[in-house]
């Protein structure tokens, strides 16, 4: 069963179409990364799924229940973007109230345990109004998980956090996956998404432009595999032959006495290339393969 399923989900503000008939299925237990530039429609999409805004057309289901359904929201945790906490409430007050609103008031021990998991235990009785931006983000995550949800939406969970906290949140998200929970997250940090997400969707102008695992996304861009080869000096009589072979294999970027950089379209050519060097009486000392990063895929129009 899919944790999230959207069919032809759309949102329009007057004539302006923000999300255009989006189809998406997120499997249970996945950490799903949702990327897109500002204004691409990703927050609107999350907001439709979580009941913050209503959709203009289309349907969706969360955990197998067709939405919008307030009962299923009790099994879902949401850390919305651009939200603020109650300034005069302590971190504990927040967790007690939100757990109660989700149907089961969490015990003090449970609240403290969740605060510990986001490194806010020492601030349990501090008013949220006095929290730094990063601490507010952590409390936002804590309130999203206090009722032990099966599906967690995290909109930019680590933006504005220090490096140590980012690592902590990454570990926490991975822990959710181990517990069988599904995480749907957006981020502007491509490195973060690449590291922790099982699948990724890139949204552009209200539609999903690309979707898949990192491997699948890279498959679209195999033409940009860059191979850097460190080798022994190529004998003079073999130079022309090797150069000719390399030019036929791909796009030769650099070819020196002991160093060659080439881009190829098919990774199977790497082995052929090593053989070609050997046949030309040249020892291959080191091979570095650079695959397209998520950043390159993301920026590729």
């Amino acid at each position: 069963m899919n944790a999230i399923e959207a069919k032809q989900l759309s949102k329009a503000y007057g004539a302006h179409q923000v999300v255009m008939g989006m189809d998406l299925a997120v499997r249970k237990g996945e950490i799903f990364g949702f990327l897109g530039r500002n204004g691409a429609g990703k927050s609107t999409f999350i907001n439709m799924l979580t009941g913050i805004v209503s959709s203009s057309s289309g349907t969706y289901s969360l955990l197998g229940v067709e939405g919008p359904d307030s009962k299923v929201l009790k099994r879902v945790g949401v850390m919305p973007d651009y939200s603020s906490l109650y300034g005069s409430w302590t971190a504990l007050d927040h967790l007690r109230f939100f757990s109660e609103l989700s149907g089961a008031r969490a015990s003090k021990e449970k609240c403290l345990e969740v605060l510990r998991s986001v490194d806010l235990l020492s601030h349990a009785n501090k008013k949220a109004g006095k929290f730094s931006f990063g601490m507010k983000k952590k409390l936002g995550i804590a309130q999203a998980i206090i009722h032990d949800p099966e599906l967690i939406f995290l909109d930019e969970p680590t933006s504005g956090m220090d490096a140590e906290s980012v690592i902590l949140i990454h570990r926490l998200i991975k822990e959710f996956q181990k517990q069988g929970k599904t995480v749907f997250m957006t981020s502007h940090n491509l490195d973060e998404v690449e590291k922790i997400c099982s699948r990724i969707a890139i949204m552009r102008d209200g539609i999903i432009d690309k979707i898949g695992t990192m491997e699948e996304l890279r498959a679209f861009y195999r033409s940009t595999i860059t191979v850097k080869i460190k080798h022994s000096t190529v004998p003079k009589q073999e130079q022309a032959k090797l150069e000719q072979w390399l030019e036929s294999a791909g796009s030769l970027l650099e070819h020196g006495d002991t160093y060659t950089v080439i881009t190829i379209s098919d990774e199977n050519k790497i082995a052929e290339m090593i053989r070609a060097f050997t046949q030309c009486k040249t020892d291959v000392l080191r091979v570095e393969v650079e695959e397209p990063s998520l950043e390159e895929i993301f920026l590729n129009e």
């Binding site: 913050i52 307030s70 929201l73 009790k74 949401v78 919305p80 939200s83 906490l85 109650y86 309130q143």
Partner: peptide, 16 residues
């Protein structure tokens, strides 16, 4: 206005 409503509507129905 202060966007605390986002935490409420993601947990309880609007009628509630």
């Amino acid at each position: 206005h202060e966007r605390t409503m986002r935490f409420l509507v993601t947990r309880a129905s609007r009628s509630t």
